[in-house]
């Protein structure tokens, strides 16, 4: 369960102060798929950064498995991200010069896994996203959809409990985008990891169990939460 309690994040100094997040609170059950929906500048990306421990709000709590990650020291936050979180970005951020294998290896290397243990995990992840035949190819030779699949493999290889996807289909055509969406949702249902998608695409948001609409740093409305219990999510 992820609990976000009274999170406030401001940018800028006194006169030009700007509240990116204004007293935001909500709860997400484990294993759910959540869409954080809002226009650009609404604070949805900041919310993702705060929830993943990348950004530090002035006040509030982000409690995961009973631990407030905002209270953790830098080292512990890094460890938390390395072990529990996977990221998928709009512009993929795969390393073009590296092979698919080495791209997927990065989170495991950060987690100090031995070379042998890594190999099996990487092969499994690449099989899941159907990129086994590209294992030794450089990432620059992949198409957009393949790059995003590679990014998904990198996000899931560590078996994280939460996957953040920031506009995962934003740079893809609709057909490829749909393939990626299907992949993400099927992984969410099988793997049991919580999927949090940040998007302005209401169609994609509609496919999630929970939608959190955010505007000017505040939660405008929340659909699905409270209505859908944990049992419903898991069914």
């Amino acid at each position: 369960m992820i609990e976000v309690k009274n999170v406030t994040k401001t940018y800028g100094k006194k006169n030009s102060e700007f509240k990116a997040l204004d007293d935001v609170s909500f709860t997400i059950p484990d294993g759910a798929s959540v869409a954080i929906v809002g226009k650009s500048g609404s604070g949805k990306s900041t919310l993702m950064h705060v929830m993943s421990g990348l950004d530090h709000p002035e006040s509030g709590e982000v409690v995961m498995n009973g631990i407030d990650i905002l209270q953790l020291k830098n080292k512990a936050v890094d460890k938390f991200r390395a072990e529990k979180i996977g990221f998928i970005f709009q512009s993929f951020f795969v390393q073009a010069n590296e092979t698919c294998f080495d791209n997927v290896a990065l989170p495991l290397e950060i987690n100090n896994l031995s070379t042998r243990a890594r190999k099996a995990r990487i092969e499994e992840a690449l099989l899941t996203v159907e990129l086994t035949d590209k294992t030794k190819q450089k990432a620059r030779n992949l198409s957009g959809g393949q790059k995003q699949r590679l990014a998904i493999a990198r996000a899931i290889v560590n078996k994280p409990s939460i996957i953040f996807a920031d506009e995962p289909t934003g740079n893809l055509d609709s057909t490829t985008g749909e393939t990626i969406e299907d992949l993400l949702f099927s992984l969410n249902k099988q793997g049991g990891s919580t999927l949090i998608i940040v998007t302005h695409d209401s169609e994609l948001a509609g496919k999630c169990n929970i939608q959190i609409y955010i505007k000017d740093g505040k939660i405008e409305r929340m659909v699905g939460n409270g209505v859908s219990t944990i049992e419903e999510v898991q069914s």
Binding site: F87, F93, I110
Partner: peptide, 16 residues
């Protein structure tokens, strides 16, 4: 810059 950002987002320590 982006590669470094990604590595840090994935939990790589500044020291590493």
């Amino acid at each position: 810059t982006r590669e470094i950002g990604l590595m840090k987002a994935l939990g790589m320590r500044g020291r590493s």
